[in-house]
Nucleic acid binder design. Structure first.
Lengths: 239, 239
DNA sequence: TAGTGGTCTAGACCACAAC
DNA sequence: TTGTGGTCTAGACCACTAG
């Protein structure tokens, strides 16, 4: 782990633990860089990470402040996450959550999957269908495809827990970035069936391709969020 | 304009003008920083900007490449943009686009608006309703609120063209960042009326609050995109 | 004017990919 | 081994806010 990640983790944890309280002003970056024994550029990188995750707000000439948190149940009884933070588990730490695996098999990649995962015709992928529950309500339906030769040793137990935890900690693949596409759709049969909603109800569809550090695609997923109970939050910075 | 913005603009323009072709490898960052007479950190900042806008892909150990472009009509006849790029005009440069202003008035801010724009009770805001057309089809319905004492001198002509152009170039407010929330909803009466869709059709709702450089909110907007013709693309980088 | 974050430098070393 | 982007430094100066 790099220095700026370690520093960001430390500050993030202090915010989560309420040691830095909401709207509290943090020390200025020069002071912080002395505290953490790093240069100001490194300090800035750590802080910018927290800005993009929505933990803090920086204002030139004024200072840096802990930001009121998003999170489940904050707003109109909708659940929410930052698409910048990878993974369901890390977005809903500490909440009543459950995962049900509806399908776990190996299939030959179709044209769409070949294209998204940059495979060759005839290659095989894991095909995983999971439902995510929050407070016992089914909220998210995921259809995931992963190349069998990159994500080795996958099994149902892993899939019932955190895929990203497995990828990063067990098989030591580093995630680099992701392309995401968001659409609005009407519930299809799977949505009706698994998310317990009605025909025609709106859902958020997020399609994403996640890339590892060498820019090779490791996951292609189509994720459906219940429109009535989920929203995506993010922070856009004009650079 | 800062150096890294100037550099990014130059490279972006070359990509747009096809001087750097799709999938072409760009010179490495050290060479580029010599070419642009800047330090490598500055070069990196310029390039990272283009990564987050989706123009290029960087791979450690390999190099930097021009990325296949998104853009209107690329995929399933849906229009698409990067929410990281501010503004309709800059996202759809060169396309057949039109804006119809359906409402332009000044109202007293209600509780929601007071909250989002950090106003006091009784303050006034511009209330603007616009429909955006692409290739003569109504695609986007916007409801915009802006505080009258920050966005001075607004008039219907400005609103018919580019608001951001006016804000940045005429009244010289620098945009800093934005909070965005994405939801899926079913078409309401306005959507049916202005976007010419049917009751129950899905739409993407994007709510955003845009902040100027001193972190004061200058725009609160609720934007509806036709679900059948629009999608949002973005690039997420794991820092 | 003092305080704060933003930009920029010139260079060092590290991590990863390809040969 | 070479080429590439990523991290990190120690410090300078700039831009914006507040008193």
């Amino acid at each position: 782990m790099y220095k700026y990640e370690i520093i960001a983790n430390e500050i993030r944890n202090k915010i989560k633990a309420n040691e830095f309280k909401i709207n509290e002003k943090l020390p200025d970056e020069k002071t912080l860089s002395n505290m953490f024994k790093c240069s100001r550029m490194t300090m800035k990188q750590a802080m910018d990470m927290l800005v993009s995750e929505g933990y803090i707000i920086k204002s030139r000439g004024i200072g840096t402040f802990v930001r009121p948190q998003y999170g489940p149940d904050n707003k109109n009884k909708r659940y929410s996450n930052h698409p910048n933070t990878f993974g369901f588990s890390s977005n809903f730490e500490g909440y009543d959550k459950k995962t049900e695996v509806k399908e776990f098999k190996v299939i030959e990649a179709n044209e769409e999957i070949v294209d998204k995962l940059q495979l060759k015709r005839g290659e095989f992928v894991y095909s995983i269908k999971r439902v995510r529950f929050l407070n016992k309500k089914p909220i998210i339906l995921e259809q995931i495809y992963m190349p069998i030769d990159k994500i080795v040793g996958l099994n149902k137990e892993v899939v019932e827990n955190s895929l990203y935890d497995y990828i990063e900690n067990s098989i030591k693949i580093k995630i680099y970035n992701a392309d995401k596409i968001i659409r609005a759709k009407s519930a299809n049969n799977d949505d009706i069936n698994y998310l317990k909603i009605e025909e025609g109800d709106p859902i958020i569809e997020m399609e994403h391709v996640v890339y590892s550090q060498n820019n090779s695609p490791i996951e292609y997923a189509i994720i459906h969020y219940r429109g009535d109970s989920y929203e995506l939050h993010f922070v856009t910075k004009k650079e």
